[in-house]
Amino acid sequence: MAMSSGMVLLCRLTGRSLGTALGHGRGKTLTARRWYITASAAGNNLQFKLDERTAHSSLDLFKKDTGVIYRMLGIDPSLVQDTPLRFRDWAVVLADTHIDSGRHYWEITVKRSHEFRVGVAEVLTSRDECLGTNSSSWVFAFVQRKWFAMTTGKQVPVPLVGKPDRVGLLLDYKAGRFSLVDTQKAEVVYTIKTQFRSPICPAFALWDGELLSHSGLEIPPGLQ
């Protein structure tokens, strides 16, 4: 399958071949949930932190593990504990709370970043694939001042102009709906429709700048 220049940029690696960007890598998956924190989200007020054990060595967590900064050089991979939880080739980090029911809302503030992805992924998603390139992750990607909805390697343009400092994410697990929200208007911009078959968690990829998550929020009245 030929890749457009935009897709090449969207699938930028941290040291892996272009073939893997298309989902042709080994695709290892975690086989035991015991490797992951399994604190279920209570009610609709999802609250989470980022799980350092999943973070690629180029990502540095801050603000009590609610934010992440991309470091171009990063940490020497040999100095980072190598566990089945960690993303080894992609600048990805997962949240520490899994979701298997309910409607949930959280927001993201992004600074000085030209390329990032925000979304959800199965708790046991492959650590050898990037978010949005497989069938176990659903994300909204920002690159070249444009937004895209991504899953299974397919990208759909999203009509949100520019890069707002803050966006909202609305999840309805049972209905299989994951939406990007314009926080200024409290309106859904685009919804990815799917069927979640296992626990999922908030997921993030970042190739420059920094990202801060805001969880524990009520669903805005206009989105109820």
Rank of each mutant, 00 (worst) to 15 (best):
M1L: 14
S4I: 12
S4N: 03
T14I: 11
R16M: 13
G19M: 13
G23R: 01
G25K: 11
K28I: 03
T29F: 08
A32N: 12
Y36H: 05
Y36T: 13
L46V: 09
Q47C: 11
K49S: 13
D51M: 09
E52K: 08
T54H: 01
T54Q: 01
H56S: 11
S57N: 10
S58E: 07
L59T: 03
D60P: 02
L61M: 09
K63A: 04
K64G: 10
D65K: 12
D65N: 15
V68P: 08
V68W: 08
R88D: 04
A91E: 02
A91W: 05
D96S: 08
T97C: 02
D100R: 07
E107T: 00
E115F: 12
V123C: 05
L124Y: 00
S126G: 02
V139K: 03
V143Q: 13
Q144S: 10
K146L: 10
F148D: 02
F148S: 11
A149E: 10
A149L: 00
A149T: 07
V161F: 05
L169N: 09
L171K: 00
R177M: 07
S179M: 02
V181C: 07
T183D: 03
T183F: 01
T183V: 08
A186N: 11
V188T: 08
I192M: 15
K193A: 01
K193T: 11
Q195C: 09
I200A: 05
A203V: 07
F204P: 10
A205N: 02
L206W: 12
W207T: 04
W207K: 06
D208G: 13
G216A: 02
P220M: 09
P221S: 09
